[in-house]
């Protein structure tokens, strides 16, 4: 009987310690990162073509701070992730990051005083939240939602939903389409080509 109680006690201890630590409000965490991005991009000291590379370098650091890159990649591949060898996964995460940088780097750098408003966070699960914001330009409002996950006590973005379109889902559909016909090596080759051209 005593043994039984010890066992029970051990189980309770494990349960208590497996409760995720409180990591601070997700909204504040995303807001802080976005403001830092705006700070870098809108920095009046960093102007002209020469400063572009410096800005990009700073943004890269911030990207790692803000996003959970592996979670991001994993979700875009979904079940296909399991078909990749660890080496292929590593390369994929790296290539996917470069694809995103190519696609959105200049877009972010072209920021000019648009207003960004954070207004809501909603809980998706115990360690997942959706932080809702909108970018207000002179002619329109663009809703941008960040989905964040608690990764080791920090809130990290794993999906961005722009105007109701989830980035992860959009890439997932594309990768799925390719991987339905070809193997992971072929997808990596396509991505390598995408990153190296223009």
């Amino acid at each position: 009987m005593k043994k039984h109680f010890i066992r029970l006690f051990a189980i309770f201890v494990i349960l208590i310690f497996s409760v995720p630590v409180y990591a601070g409000a997700p909204l504040d965490s995303v807001k802080k990162c976005v403001n830092e991005v705006i700070g870098i991009v809108g920095n009046p000291k960093l102007k002209g073509e020469a400063a572009k590379e410096i800005k990009k370098e700073k943004l890269r650091v911030l990207y790692k701070e803000m996003f959970d890159e592996i979670e991001f990649s994993k979700r875009t591949l979904a079940r296909n992730w399991n078909k990749f060898t660890p080496d292929q996964r590593k390369e994929f995460v790296n290539l996917f990051e470069q694809v995103l940088e190519k696609a959105y780097g200049d877009k972010v750098l072209s920021y000019t005083n648009e207003k960004v408003e954070f207004y809501k966070e909603s809980k998706l699960s115990d360690d997942q939240f959706e932080v809702q914001s909108k970018i207000i330009t002179s002619s329109k409002e663009v809703p941008v939602f960040y989905r964040v996950i608690n990764s080791n006590g920090k809130w990290k973005v794993y999906d961005v939903v722009v105007e109701n379109v989830s980035l992860v889902q959009n890439y997932r559909t594309q990768f799925n389409d390719i991987l339905a016909k070809d193997n992971p090596a072929k997808l990596l080759e396509i991505l390598r080509k995408k990153v190296s051209t223009h």
Binding site: A103, Y104, N170, T173, Q174, F175, D177, I190, L191, K194
Partner: peptide, 8 residues
Amino acid sequence: AAVDPYVA
């Protein structure tokens, strides 16, 4: 941004 624009 797309790998396959049509699918995207």
